[in-house]
Amino acid sequence: MATGNDNGYDIRSILNQMREEYWEALSEEESEAKQMLECLVFTLGGERYAFETHFACEVIRIPKLIRVPAVQSLVTGIFNLRGDITAAIDIRPMLGLAQPELGPAGRILVVRGDLFSTGILVEAAHGVQPLDLERFETAVAGLSAERKQFIRGHFNLEEGAVLLLDMEALLAAPELLVGEA
């Protein structure tokens, strides 16, 4: 188990590095043509977040969630996604965010990782928006280390900042796996 984790972190740091290089390269190119990134925008812990649309399968209203006994609190419950049992997870503690109650605007973003699909609980979904990469900055001031792990940077938009989630890192986080392999 311990060795697996070490490998995981190694890979993650390499991925992070690659990702940074990728973004740097992108911001250099951007000066020529205006580049947009298609993102799904939503609210988490009162802040606006986004991730690339290719991770998203669908956005649904929160159905009845069935609590699973004796598992980590991250897993709020399971629900029936057209015959497939799917977990609904609350990632806000992973990002160090507050957990305001999910009201009628609450949604589940079903995302697809390499290994599994899972449902991310959000306070509201604002649909797909093209975000201007020119306004993207990798550095986000005042973020704790644990938050940095899953955040690639932010877009400075007129209506306020939108943080870009690192979905790849998030879906690979061991905290998401339930039970013994």
Binding site: G83, T86, A87, L115, F116, L177
Partner: peptide, 10 residues
């Protein structure tokens, strides 16, 4: 039904 790949032996 299985619980899906996110779940191991719970």
């Amino acid at each position: 039904k299985g619980l899906g790949k996110q779940f191991g032996n719970v």
